[in-house]
Amino acid sequence: MNSSSLLTPSSSPSPHLQSPATFDHDDFLHHIFSSTPWPSSVLDDTPPPTSDCAPVTGFHHHDADSRNQITMIPLSHNHPNDALFNGFSTGSLPFHLPQGSGGQTQTQSQATASATTGGATAQPQTKPKVRARRGQATDPHSIAERLRRERIAERMKSLQELVPNGNKTDKASMLDEIIDYVKFLQLQVKVLSMSRLGGAASASSQISEDAGGSHENTSSSGEAKMTEHQVAKLMEEDMGSAMQYLQGKGLCLMPISLATTISTATCPSRSPFVKDTGVPLSPNLSTTIVANGNGSSLVTVKDAPSVSKP
């Protein structure tokens, strides 16, 4: 009844006053009704509305509404106080958030400051390095050292051209190749020199070979023939290339006369070297041909091809 009586006076003054304003007020009242603390306030305020309803004038009604609001607020001190505290607490969060953001900005500023300080520390470190690297020193000691390095580099390049496997870039490996090649060349020269020393014995070697003419000629492998062909061709063109080729193959150039002498010297005593003696048998025949050629007799030269043909 009380609630219905309250509703009716609100509806009655609406035609008297402006309808939209009253509608807005009604909406506001509805929102207030929807809030939780309102029912408790309604229960507490049950006797005052009846006394207010006695004067039916609109003006009084407005005053009554305002009075109700004013009275409601102090009556519900606890609830509005809680609401206010809640509002402050909720408000404090955004207040703290900007404080937090302020802190972040401070940390960022500190980060930038430290970055700038780091940059400042880095700059003096890089500056002397740049100077040391880029600057062309002009003192005589530095110039002399530079010339020495350039001279060594030029000579190292020249040696690379003379040495097989000259494509290595490591200085230590390059020197190893040079050392091995020099040793190989020394060995080659010594072997050829030994044959020169034995030149006087060519006649005796011919005699021994004539006695050994009955030996069968063993055919060498095609690969060996190709290697010999390549070496002979290179020796005609460039001795340096031929020597590099031989070192790469692990072979050494030796006169057949020297090889024959070595095989005959070792043949009678050591049987394990029979296999080795078998290898230079074919050189015997070629040596015979060459010996005939060395005889400087045209007739013998003609005989040599006839012998080789069959």
Binding site: K190, V191, T227, V231, K249, T261, A265, S286
Partner: peptide
């Protein structure tokens, strides 16, 4: 090479020859 009186020998077999004195090899012949 053989027509010219030369042959190819592995370096392993040549080292021993080079280390020795040439006169010793030519004497028996």
């Amino acid at each position: 090479l053989r027509n010219r009186g030369l042959c190819l020998v592995p370096m392993e077999n040549t080292v021993g020859v080079a280390q020795s004195n040439g006169a010793d090899i030519w004497a028996p012949v």
